[in-house]
């Protein structure tokens, strides 16, 4: 298997954490993974983004031209990366912040009102976990239980309550797939 995912949004939306959790979960499953933050100028343009690869083989280039999946947390991200997604790929759209529809008809699209659900849960900051939950459910790239484990490791400094809230957000997101 080979999943190449670009996760993009505004700085502060927890984009890098989404990527890290996918990579960490993949590693826990014994897969080869890489995580690369937005860095090259070819990926600039008002968005924070990262590229994650989960593979059963050695990861060659960590730089991906055409991802198999895109998680777009805001409209500039969708505008920037929509056309690059591989045919039959997946685009997960944060419907709370993106009003337009995905133009492509050769990809699978999931629309998730991530911010609205996060607000319902009482903390806008977990919108990233809502959309991640949706991606995991749709792509089955890694197992949700391993995302939970990765989350516990990543948020070890946070309170039990905060970790529980993040898990709840992941589960709510998983309902959209």
């Amino acid at each position: 298997m080979l999943d190449e995912i670009i996760i993009a949004g505004f700085g502060g939306q927890g984009i890098l954490l989404i990527g890290r959790l996918i990579a960490q979960a993949g590693m826990l499953e014994g897969k080869q993974v890489s995580w690369m933050p937005s860095y090259g100028p070819e990926m600039r343009g008002g968005t924070a983004n990262c590229t994650v690869i989960v593979s059963s083989e050695e990861v060659a280039s960590p730089v991906v031209s055409n991802p198999s999946s895109l998680i777009a947390m805001n409209q500039p991200s969708l505008d920037k990366f929509e056309s690059l997604v591989e045919k039959d790929g997946i685009i997960i759209v944060n419907k709370s912040l993106i009003s337009r529809n995905v133009k492509r008809d050769d990809v699978e699209v999931v629309e998730v009102p991530a911010n609205d659900i996060a607000n319902e849960l009482g903390n806008l900051r977990v919108a990233n976990m809502v959309i991640l939950g949706s991606y995991i459910a749709k792509s089955k790239s890694v197992k949700m239980e391993n995302v939970f484990r990765a989350l516990e490791e990543a948020l070890y400094r946070q309170s039990e309550k905060m970790i529980k809230l993040n898990k709840e957000a992941l589960e709510r997101g998983a309902m959209f797939c």
């Binding site: 080869q32 993974v33 890489s34 933050p37 860095y39 960590p62």
Partner: peptide, 10 residues
Amino acid sequence: DGLLGQMMEP
């Protein structure tokens, strides 16, 4: 290089 330094891998 900066890419190797910044990226995460197992």
